[in-house]
Amino acid sequence: MAIDTNKLVTVFGGSGFLGRYVVHALAQSGHRIRVACRRPDLAYHLQTAGRLGQIQPIQANLRYPWSVERAVADADHVVNLVGILSESGRQRFSSVQTDGAQAVAEAAARHGIGLTHVSAIGADENSNSRYASSKGKGERLVREAVPQATILRPSILFGIEDEFFNRFANMARLSPFLPLVGGGKTLFQPVYVHDVARAVAEVVNEAVPTGRIYELGGPEVLSFREMMEEMLRIIERRRLFLPLPFGVARPLASVLQFLPGAPLTPDQVIQLGKDNIVSDAARAEGRTFESFNIQPNTLDGVLPTYLVRFRPQGQFTRPGTIADHSE
């Protein structure tokens, strides 16, 4: 059991996919955690990640500065994990990933405390993608408010609750084919959510230099197609690939974005036009997992632990059996 550091860390977005792992990693480091989220009643399950009273949910909404201020008050460090993959209702890229990031950073600046901001590889204020552009603008506003803020840019996250491999594995269970936007040539560096959470904790623990932008990618660089092939191998199903040129994917996404769950949006098509991997500059300057002394996990070491349920007979599927298109 970790020694109590008596450091209070406010985590915005602590109830989300990455958030639950960050809260656990911070609790294991001995910190007290204040989980700031819109629905604290949906975050009480996080309390089991630490000792009695170590983790406390609090209501906060990035659109309301007073709630952000209340969540930051008396904290020793702030972690901002809030982000969305697609827009819906009042949740817009600009309000969450730009204005929201600014609100958290300015609150941290007023209280004179450290800030860790989780962005994404591909963040670029000048990007044609609204997602990437809002991330880039958010980074700039964070650095303007807190020059010594540490920014982490992970590639696509995978883990038991992920919205990527789970979504496509479920699609493979129901459909005889899988779409490949742009032919599936876009490169990714999928990174295990637990490894990114450990990196966040190391920043809070002051184990790495602050004020830098770190790019976090897994040990493998894979194309979209290769990731789908790996997923199909693990769930032991054969499926046809349906290449969708960008010129076809864009109008198709314009229609699909209105379906429940938005399987594909025009903005995501734009994002798929650019590789999502650690830059040469980050590698040369050591702004990667190397600085954290973390050896990131491989897909093959993690995916089978949670995708097994998508096999034809689930965990009881005979090893080596691959289903045909009719299954």
Score class of each variant (00 low, 15 high):
residue 147 P to C: 12
residue 147 P to D: 13
residue 147 P to S: 14
residue 148 Q to P: 00
residue 148 Q to H: 13
residue 150 T to G: 08
residue 150 T to W: 13
residue 151 I to V: 14
residue 151 I to Q: 08
residue 152 L to C: 12
residue 152 L to G: 14
residue 153 R to I: 01
residue 153 R to Q: 15
residue 153 R to F: 02
residue 154 P to F: 12
residue 154 P to C: 13
residue 155 S to P: 03
residue 155 S to E: 04
residue 155 S to W: 04
residue 155 S to A: 15
residue 156 I to M: 13
residue 156 I to T: 11
residue 157 L to N: 09
residue 157 L to W: 03
residue 158 F to I: 02
residue 158 F to A: 05
residue 158 F to L: 03
residue 159 G to Q: 07
residue 159 G to Y: 12
residue 160 I to V: 13
residue 160 I to D: 13
residue 160 I to Q: 13
residue 161 E to A: 14
residue 161 E to I: 00
residue 161 E to P: 00
residue 162 D to R: 02
residue 162 D to V: 05
residue 163 E to I: 01
residue 163 E to F: 03
residue 163 E to C: 00
residue 164 F to K: 00
residue 165 F to A: 03
residue 165 F to P: 01
residue 166 N to F: 11
residue 166 N to K: 07
residue 166 N to T: 08
residue 167 R to S: 12
residue 167 R to E: 12
residue 167 R to P: 01
residue 167 R to C: 02
residue 167 R to W: 10
residue 168 F to E: 01
residue 169 A to S: 11
residue 169 A to N: 08
residue 169 A to D: 12
residue 170 N to S: 14
residue 172 A to S: 15
residue 172 A to C: 11
residue 172 A to E: 14
residue 173 R to C: 11
residue 173 R to N: 11
residue 173 R to G: 14
residue 174 L to E: 10
residue 174 L to G: 00
residue 175 S to K: 11
residue 175 S to N: 15
residue 175 S to C: 14
residue 175 S to A: 15
residue 176 P to I: 05
residue 176 P to E: 10
residue 177 F to Q: 09
residue 178 L to P: 07
residue 179 P to Y: 07
residue 179 P to K: 05
residue 180 L to W: 08
residue 180 L to E: 09
residue 181 V to F: 01
residue 181 V to Y: 02
residue 181 V to G: 03
residue 183 G to N: 04
residue 183 G to F: 01
residue 183 G to V: 02
residue 184 G to A: 03
residue 184 G to C: 08
residue 184 G to R: 03
residue 185 K to I: 04
residue 185 K to T: 08
residue 185 K to F: 02
residue 185 K to Q: 06
residue 186 T to N: 10
residue 186 T to Q: 11
residue 188 F to N: 06
residue 188 F to A: 02
residue 188 F to V: 02
residue 188 F to H: 10
residue 189 Q to F: 02
residue 189 Q to I: 01
residue 190 P to R: 02
residue 190 P to K: 01
residue 191 V to L: 07
residue 191 V to K: 06
residue 191 V to Q: 05
residue 192 Y to I: 06
residue 192 Y to L: 06
residue 192 Y to S: 06
residue 192 Y to W: 14
residue 192 Y to Q: 07
residue 192 Y to H: 13
residue 193 V to A: 14
residue 193 V to M: 09
residue 193 V to D: 06
residue 194 H to S: 15
residue 194 H to E: 15
residue 195 D to E: 06
residue 196 V to R: 08
residue 196 V to S: 06
residue 196 V to L: 11
residue 197 A to D: 01
residue 197 A to W: 00
residue 197 A to F: 01
residue 197 A to Y: 02
residue 197 A to M: 03
residue 198 R to M: 12
residue 198 R to G: 12
residue 198 R to E: 13
residue 198 R to V: 06
residue 199 A to W: 08
residue 199 A to M: 09
residue 199 A to C: 09
